[in-house]
């Protein structure tokens, strides 16, 4: 069942320096509950694509349908996780998660469950300055999940974290996905991360930003990065990248 449907989505940025074709004829269908990762060289339009899906950027061509309805602006249906956690520094963990929602008994209960889900018990009343980068990003994820989004959009959410924290965050996110069955669209520039998480890896080209290839990852969870099937897909993705012109800036982590 299709949840998200992108038809002929194109986006141009017009500046004094000229026209950037950030996205060109993007066609993408995302099934309900699917975990999509998007990978591509920097500047290929990954963030632009996520912002369009989120409704943060509505000046584009083509249409974006969520559950059959056109996306006209941002809403809590589309949870967004930025690269930085972007917490409110003056609110503690609990209040950052509930944010603008009235603190009813129901909300309180849900917040408590989510704090458990993102493994932050004991930090309910801590302020953002007391949290590590990974913890803060987990608060941001809980904040989005509290609104029961139909889809969670994540723009290189673990990009700023060290390797260990990153691996832990991947586990947490997979755990959330398996428990909540939230549809995920996850942008990364780490090939292993992309394969490790995804049902389907979307590889993009730069200038103009297009979808180069989609590679399904049929490996069952829990996955092992050393597993032969995993390595085979990794080779496939790497081969694609060797052909990508602007692929130099792509980070390939060796693990």
């Amino acid at each position: 069942m299709t949840l998200l449907d992108l038809n002929d989505v194109s986006k141009r940025f017009i500046t004094e320096k000229g026209i950037t074709r950030a996205l060109d004829d993007i066609e993408l269908d995302v099934k309900k509950g699917e975990f999509i990762t998007i990978i591509g060289p920097s500047g290929c339009g990954k963030s632009t694509l996520l912002k369009i899906i989120a409704g943060l950027d509505t000046e584009h061509e083509g249409e974006v349908l969520l559950d059959g309805d056109a996306v006209l602006g941002p809403s809590i249906d589309k949870g967004f996780i930025f690269q930085e956690p972007r917490l409110f520094p003056w609110l503690n963990v609990e209040k950052n998660i509930s944010a603008n929602l009235p603190v009813t008994k129901e909300v309180k209960e849900h917040v408590r469950e989510l704090i458990k889900l993102v493994r932050l018990e004991g930090f309910e009343t801590a302020y953002p300055k007391e949290l590590s980068g990974g913890m803060a990003q987990r608060v941001a994820i809980a904040r989005a999940l509290l609104r029961n989004p139909k889809v969670l959009l994540l723009d290189e959410p673990f990009g700023a974290l060290d390797a260990f924290t990153r691996a832990h965050m991947q586990e947490v996110l997979l755990d959330i996905w398996q428990k909540n069955k939230t549809t995920m669209i996850f942008v990364t520039h780490d090939i292993d991360e992309a394969i490790y998480l995804a049902d389907r890896v979307v590889i993009m080209n730069a200038r103009p930003g297009t979808i180069r290839k989609m590679i399904p990852v049929g490996v069952t969870h829990p996955r092992k990065k050393t597993n032969a099937d995993f390595q085979k897909i990794r080779q496939q993705v790497l081969t694609e990248f060797e052909q990508v012109e602007h692929g130099k800036s792509l980070a390939v982590s060796h693990s």
């Binding site: 989120a54 943060l56 941002p74 809403s75 809590i76 589309k78 949870g79 967004f80 930025f82 930085e84 972007r86 409110f88 003056w90 609110l91 944010a99 603008n100 904040r143 989005a144 609104r147």
Partner: peptide, 27 residues
């Protein structure tokens, strides 16, 4: 301005934007 994006994504009402974002930030 990055927090304004958050407020948009979380669908803050105008009132919540003032009380939960702008005033505390300006405090």
């Amino acid at each position: 301005s990055k927090l304004f994006d958050v407020a948009k994504v979380l669908q803050f009402s105008k009132w919540k934007q003032i009380t939960t974002l702008i005033l505390p930030a300006a405090l």
